[in-house]
C-alpha cells in the first residue's frame, strides 16, 4: 500500500506543478505573502493601526533611497506619518483576513444551497436557483457596495469603522455566493444519477450522508478552482470598497484605503503612498490569478460559465 504522501508525490498534479515555472514562482510568492500577513504584528517596525505610534510630523517622508528619506522608514511614510512598510504589511494582513473569511462564507452558503438544489431538485431547486439568478444578474461588487453603503448610512460611519473587518467579510461573503452554489449544483446534477449514488441510496443511507460523503467530494476540484479565483475577487472587492470610502477606515487602512489616501498626494510628487501599496496589491492578486489559471488548466473542472 502506498501512503497518501507517496500517492501525492507521484501524482500528475505535482508533476505538472514542477514543470510549470510560473506556477511554482507564483506559489513561492504567495507563501511569502501569506507568511508576511501572518507575521505582520511581529515583523513590522511599528503598529500602524495604533494612533499612539503615529506622529503627523513624520508625514510624507519619501523612501530611504530618495533625497530626504530616512532609514527609520525604509519605504517612506504616508500622509498621516505612518511607516509605509508596516502599513503595507498590516494592510495585506487585513485584506487576506477579509478575503479568506469572505470566501469561507461564500463557500459555506454555496455548498449547502448548491447541494440542496442539486440533490433535492424540484421546488427547492427552482426557488434556490431563481434566487441565485436574481442575485447573479447584479454584479457582486454592486451588491457589496449597496450593502455597505446602506449600512453606513443607517448606522453611521462611526459604528461601521469599529466593525469594519467582520462587516466587510460578511458583506463580500454574502454578495458572491451564487457562483459556488451554481457550480456545486451543476456537479451534483452530473453525479447524482451515477450508479454509486444509486447504490448508496438503495442501501438506505440518509440523504445528508449521501450528499456530504459521496457527492461533495466529487465537486471538490471545482470548489478548489473557484475558491482561488474568488479569493482574488474578494481581495479586489475589499480594495474597491475601501477605495470608495465604504470599506476599511483611514484609521486602519487596508491597501485600498491607502491608495485612496495617497491619490491626492500622488500628483504633487508623493507617489509612494499610492504606487507602493498599489504594486503590492497587484502582485498579490496576480499570483493568485496565475495559480488559479494553472489550477483550472490542470484540474479542468466543469465550471459554470458566465
Amino acid at each position: 500500500m502506498k501512503t497518501k504522501l507517496q500517492q501525492f508525490k507521484e501524482s500528475y498534479f505535482l508533476y505538472s506543478f514542477r514543470r510549470d515555472m510560473v506556477a511554482m514562482a507564483s506559489f513561492v510568492v504567495l507563501v511569502i505573502f501569506l507568511g508576511i500577513a501572518f507575521a505582520a504584528p511581529w515583523i513590522s517596525p511599528m503598529n500602524p493601526y495604533d494612533s499612539a505610534n503615529i506622529d503627523i510630523m513624520n508625514s510624507e517622508i519619501p523612501p530611504m533611497w530618495m533625497d530626504g528619506g530616512s532609514k527609520e522608514f525604509p519605504l517612506g511614510t504616508d500622509n498621516q506619518g505612518r511607516d509605509m512598510l508596516s502599513t503595507m504589511f498590516y494592510g495585506l494582513r487585513t485584506s487576506i483576513i477579509i478575503g479568506l473569511g469572505a470566501v469561507a462564507i461564500q463557500a459555506a452558503i454555496g455548498i449547502v444551497l448548491g447541494l440542496m438544489a442539486g440533490y433535492l431538485g424540484g421546488k427547492t431547486d427552482a426557488i434556490l436557483m431563481r434566487l441565485a439568478d436574481i442575485q447573479f444578474s447584479f454584479p457582486y461588487l454592486m451588491v457589496a457596495i449597496f450593502m455597505s453603503a446602506i449600512f453606513q448610512v443607517v448606522f453611521g460611519a462611526g459604528s461601521f469603522e469599529q466593525l469594519a473587518i467582520p462587516l466587510l467579510t460578511i458583506i463580500i461573503g454574502l454578495s458572491n455566493w451564487p457562483m459556488f452554489a451554481r457550480t456545486i449544483r451543476a456537479s451534483v446534477m452530473g453525479e447524482k444519477n451515477k450508479e454509486y449514488v444509486e447504490a448508496a441510496r438503495v442501501i438506505g443511507l440518509p440523504q445528508r450522508i449521501i450528499m456530504f460523503r459521496h457527492i461533495l467530494p466529487n465537486a471538490l476540484t471545482s470548489v478548489m478552482v473557484i475558491s482561488t479565483i474568488q479569493v482574488a475577487n474578494a481581495v479586489m472587492s475589499e480594495a474597491a470598497l475601501s477605495f470608495l470610502g465604504l470599506g476599511m477606515p483611514v484609521t486602519k487602512p487596508s491597501l485600498g484605503s491607502l491608495i485612496r489616501a495617497g491619490q491626492e498626494y500622488f500628483f504633487s510628487g508623493s507617489w509612494w503612498i499610492t504606487v507602493l501599496p498599489g504594486l503590492w496589491l497587484v502582485l498579490f492578486v496576480l499570483v493568485i490569478n496565475l495559480l488559479g489559471d494553472w489550477l483550472r488548466d490542470v484540474l479542468n473542472p466543469k465550471l459554470y460559465k458566465g
Partner: peptide
C-alpha cells in the same frame, strides 16, 4: 490579460491620469 485582470480599475485610472494628464 492576466495582468489586466489583477489590476484594480482605480489604480489604472490614477496611473493614467499621472502619465497623460500630469
Amino acid at each position: 490579460s492576466t495582468l489586466g485582470v489583477s489590476m484594480p480599475v482605480f489604480l489604472t485610472a490614477i496611473l493614467l491620469i499621472y502619465l497623460f494628464a500630469v
